[in-house]
Simulated scan of single mutants.
Amino acid sequence: MSKTFQGKVVVVTGGASGIGLATAKRFSELGASVYVTGRREAELAAAVKAIGGDVTGVRGDASKLADLDTLYDTIQQRHAHIDVLVPNAGGGSMLPLGAITEEHYDDTFGRNVKGVIFTVQKALPLLRDGGAIVLIGSTAAVQGTPAFSVYSASKAAVRNLARGWTTDLRERGIRVNVVSPGPVKTPGLVELAGPDAAAQQGLLDFMASQIPLGRVADPSEIAKAVTFLASADASFIAGAELFVDGGMTQV
């Protein structure tokens, strides 16, 4: 495998499972020195082992500014710069209009919007000119999904952060883009159906039926899109949204 990111420093928040884990592993395979974060120590340690290569795990919650300071202090001590930033940490749960609570709103926007904003802003002193930021959006941002309006709104915000930041960072040549996955077989997705395995499989089967390619994605497929947008092959792509959804929102 080509070492496209040899000598590069990459940060992936929320890298202990799902898309974040697959993305961190892909960057490591391509030669990068990778930093990953996660909120739970045991899961983070397992992820570091699974990723392999030059990888460092830093426990923390991306929605907590003090934890972000710890992350960037750790990077400053070892590498003193960042080449690629992937603010992947996020998530959400389902509540229909009429049942939305302040706690639900704060949790969703705290993880998906506040966390992304300050993950990027606090990285700026370390982020190299000419570097890349790849945000993680969602097809939910452009579709109406029952009981998922708060999450969808948070991901629509992520898409527009990329537009604004592309102009804010133009003088530094830092490219900001968004990868928006469709349904991906991750713990975060299947848990929306609850703990029952049959219900989880039923959710995956239903989602696959809505996708032209007839299946949900593997996290590694999203990771490949992220590494493409972070690479020199995407050197003239900025402020863009790349849908990786099997055609679900495109046909």
Rank of each mutant, 00 (worst) to 15 (best):
Q200I: 06
S63E: 07
K64F: 08
A238P: 01
R39N: 04
T166H: 07
G130N: 10
A22C: 09
V184R: 05
I237M: 10
V179L: 09
Y72W: 10
V190C: 05
V86N: 00
V9M: 02
K122C: 12
L169Y: 11
V142E: 12
E221V: 15
T108C: 08
R59D: 08
Q77W: 05
R39M: 07
A62E: 04
D168F: 00
E241Y: 06
F5N: 01
V150N: 04
G20C: 07
V10R: 01
G38P: 04
D129N: 13
M248V: 06
G110S: 08
N160L: 14
L189I: 09
S63I: 06
F243N: 11
E221F: 15
V251I: 15
V158P: 03
A197W: 08
Q77E: 14
H81W: 07
A66D: 14
A230R: 05
R159G: 08
D233E: 15
V190G: 06
V178A: 10
D129V: 10
R215V: 12
D54I: 08
Q210K: 13
I136D: 00
I51K: 00
V251G: 15
L124A: 09
V10K: 03
K49A: 15
P219T: 12
P212E: 11
N112E: 01
A24I: 02
A208H: 10
T74I: 01
Q77A: 15
V9I: 12
D107F: 09
G131K: 03
V120E: 05
L65F: 13
P219G: 11
A99W: 09
A230M: 08
V10L: 06
D106R: 07
A197M: 14
Q201C: 14
L127N: 03
V48C: 05
Y35C: 04
T227H: 08
G188F: 03
G131N: 05
Q77T: 13
V11G: 03
V184W: 10
S235L: 06
V11W: 00
K3D: 14
S209F: 11
R26L: 13
L229Y: 00
D245H: 09
R39A: 04
A198C: 10
A42N: 13
G15F: 01
Y35P: 00
G247M: 11
L213W: 15
A47R: 01
D54H: 12
T13K: 00
G20R: 02
K155C: 04
I117T: 15
E103N: 13
A156Y: 01
E191H: 07
Q201H: 12
R175Q: 05
